[in-house]
Amino acid sequence: MQGSSARLTEQELNVARLAREGLTNRDIGARLFISARTAEYHLRKVFTKLGIRGRAELKTALAELDSEAR
């Protein structure tokens, strides 16, 4: 994970957490009242900031973020 560039916005964190739970972009959009395309945009930014390549890596990356926040 990359240092300060790993700072996620509140919306990016919300989208990432829902994606980690297995929700589709469409489902994430419905939950957060955004479009599926906007959910996809946020996820791409999350992947870049966390230095990961996909949803499968979200669980580990978010766990590391949560542990750093403590």
Rank of each mutant, 00 (worst) to 15 (best):
1 M>W: 02
1 M>L: 07
3 G>N: 11
4 S>T: 07
4 S>G: 05
5 S>P: 05
5 S>R: 12
5 S>Y: 03
6 A>V: 06
7 R>A: 14
9 T>V: 00
10 E>F: 08
11 Q>D: 15
12 E>Q: 15
13 L>P: 01
13 L>D: 09
14 N>Y: 07
14 N>I: 00
15 V>E: 02
16 A>Q: 06
17 R>Q: 15
17 R>P: 03
18 L>H: 11
19 A>N: 02
19 A>H: 12
19 A>W: 06
21 E>Y: 01
21 E>T: 10
22 G>Q: 11
25 N>H: 15
27 D>I: 03
27 D>W: 07
29 G>F: 10
30 A>D: 05
31 R>N: 10
31 R>L: 10
34 I>T: 06
35 S>P: 02
35 S>K: 07
36 A>Y: 00
37 R>A: 09
38 T>D: 13
39 A>G: 04
39 A>S: 13
42 H>G: 10
42 H>Q: 09
43 L>W: 04
45 K>R: 15
45 K>S: 15
48 T>Q: 02
50 L>Y: 01
50 L>H: 01
50 L>R: 01
51 G>Y: 10
51 G>P: 09
52 I>Y: 00
52 I>V: 00
52 I>D: 07
52 I>L: 01
53 R>M: 06
53 R>Y: 05
55 R>C: 03
56 A>M: 10
57 E>Q: 13
57 E>A: 08
58 L>A: 01
60 T>P: 04
61 A>M: 00
61 A>V: 02
62 L>P: 08
63 A>Q: 12
63 A>C: 06
64 E>I: 07
64 E>V: 07
65 L>F: 00
65 L>E: 08
66 D>P: 07
66 D>T: 12
67 S>M: 00
67 S>E: 09
68 E>C: 02
68 E>A: 05
69 A>T: 02
70 R>T: 10
70 R>H: 00
